[in-house]
Amino acid sequence: MSSLSQATEVAPGYRAGHTLPLRVEAVRQLRRRRTLVMGLVLALLPFVLVVAFAIGGTPEGRENRVTLMTTATASGANLAATALFVSAAFLLVVPVALFCGDTVASEASWSSLRYLLAAPVPRARLLVSKLAVALVFSAAAMVLLPLVALAVGTVAYGWGPLRMPTGGELPVGDALVRLALVVLYIFLSQLVTAALAFWLSTVTDAPLGAVGGAVGLTIVGNVLDAVTALGSWRDFLPAHWQFAWADALQPHMEWGGMVKGVSVSVAYALVLFALAFRGFGRKDVVS
């Protein structure tokens, strides 16, 4: 392609690599009500926990099982850990499924997808932008919850070391590093949900279908993981490792579970992301 023909080839100033910048996509998504509601729910949860503990008294473990619940009111760091503990299995799955599952499908349902594609935003570029923004939003949701819990917990229970349910304490500095590690692990282990939702999002034009499908399959994974007869096959279920982050809150850091969990999650995610890009690249857009 010579520079002479370039003039007629594209409109002046158009460059495929500059279409749908991340900032634009972020603004498009940020002002949506579901984003705000999700943020609000996550920001309110720590307050709900504090109020619940205030009404119900000091938390006690169920049937003498040691859980993070028993130490929730020990310090701000403990409340942050507890907030993660109660929400990691389901509450944090929802924003990931929502942000990643809704992103393409909602554009299809609004019919705005075809105008973006005809702008033209190259299809792979569109997916990259949308995926990046959805993942950043998901990560923000995961950071928001413990951050608010830490602040609220510090006001309510004081700034102190993280008391572990199995005994022992972590100094505040270490505890914050461990909590950051926990959030990072939860994010990486949710990549599989993100990829599943994103793939469904490129397949269907119904945003609810993509989000619900991803959440539903996550629940199916949990159910399968409860079938102990599957034995070591469960190692390959992402749900099997969903609480591996608790290893970071033990006196002895255990990496094994988290490494395996990340491995399984990343493996599934890679294939699902590839399916999304492959399918969307050749798909007839009829929405």
Binding site: E9, V10, A11, Y14, A16, R28, R31, R32, R33, W110, S111, S112, L113, R114, Y115, L117, A118, A119, P120, V121, P122, R123, R125, G281
Partner: peptide
């Protein structure tokens, strides 16, 4: 799909497509 020359084309096909919010 996504041919750069489409940047010289403006289109309105089968109804509007906007972000309702």
């Amino acid at each position: 799909p996504g041919a750069p020359v489409l940047s010289r084309v403006g289109a309105f096909v089968e109804g509007a497509g906007f972000l309702p919010h």
